[in-house]
Design a protein around this nucleic acid. Sequence first.
DNA 1: GCCAACGTTGGC
DNA 2: GCCAACGTTGGC
Length: 153
Amino acid sequence: MAYWLMKSEPDVFGIDDLQRAGVEPWDGVRNYQVRNMIRDRMQVGDLAFFYHSNCPVPGIVGIMRICRAGYPDQSAFDPQHRSFDPKSEPANPRWYCVDVEFVTKFRGVISLAWLKRQPQMAECPLVQRGNRLSIMPLTEAQWNFISDHSQWR
DNA sequence: GCCAACGTTGGC
DNA sequence: GCCAACGTTGGC
């Protein structure tokens, strides 16, 4: 089983939206490095932290579970969708998504500012300069370090 | 709202 | 294949 961190802007789709929906496609990824992870590496049963980006307190707000492995991102085919990409065709899809299901919402935010101060997180792309991955793998040690901070949950 | 960092595009 | 221009991400 693998561990992930997945970013979303709460103004667009936040942890509360996922809690309401239960299960949602994690669509709209338009970065090839991230596409490859979705398509080739994410498996049913993997766990992921839900990260709120581009908001007053960016950070980890909960946990979700991958409940469907990579499949073609339907939003790329829809001209009305904000993530529409005319270069992706159903016969030859360019973009992929997974389905995620809600597991837990933390009582507080495990903020990026706090994560940056933890030596255990120094190797995580999240805290490194210029990182632009909207989905990134975490080591088991990083996952356990964060989830063991139960005072946040 | 600003802007650094980085990815993509397209002319040549 | 180079690289300038442009678009996007996302913290602050």
